[in-house]
Amino acid sequence: MEVVFIILLNLIPVFLFVVLPFFLSWVFGNWHQGRIINQLAAEEMALNNSGAGHPVSNLSKPSQATGIETSMLVMSSVSVGPSWWQMMLGGWKNFFGGRIESYDKMLGYGRRKVLHDMRVQALQQGFDEIINVRVETSMVTKKSQRDDKTAGYEFIAYGTAIKYSRS
């Protein structure tokens, strides 16, 4: 009886520092990520429903032959990271190979977010279009030898915003 008790007592720290963080990460991560993804989807939907155009393209030349009033470089960027739980799932998948669905969620979000921000920027500042848009991804934190539980990916979108002269 006493032996069982001691074993259970020793399991408490294991539970507190190993199992509990991942459990919380799973629960709150899902909740938080679901919330920001839904929020972005709602913003995109609202923009589409308001009849706003899609001014962002990766054409290398302006689509209209009319005169150009101004042009400038615009960019938007965001850093996102998967949750500990997703990182752990990703680590598992790395062992067996195959699609890492847990990473899809946040990386997909980051890419959609920068493009959405560009579109909003163009509409708000009154640009007619943003051409030659490039989207780049880079890893901002290298996971060190000892796993420091930080992983960040940066997405940046940049392009040339154009305002046509109205005459």
Partner: peptide, 26 residues
């Protein structure tokens, strides 16, 4: 900030500290 981001990584999502830092640096 690193430690903060490490904790933010617990739930994932946007890491605002890194976003700002990289924008400034860019």
């Amino acid at each position: 900030k690193d430690i903060g981001a490490g904790f933010k990584n617990m739930v994932g999502g946007e890491l605002k500290a890194y976003t700002e830092l990289l924008q400034e640096a860019r």
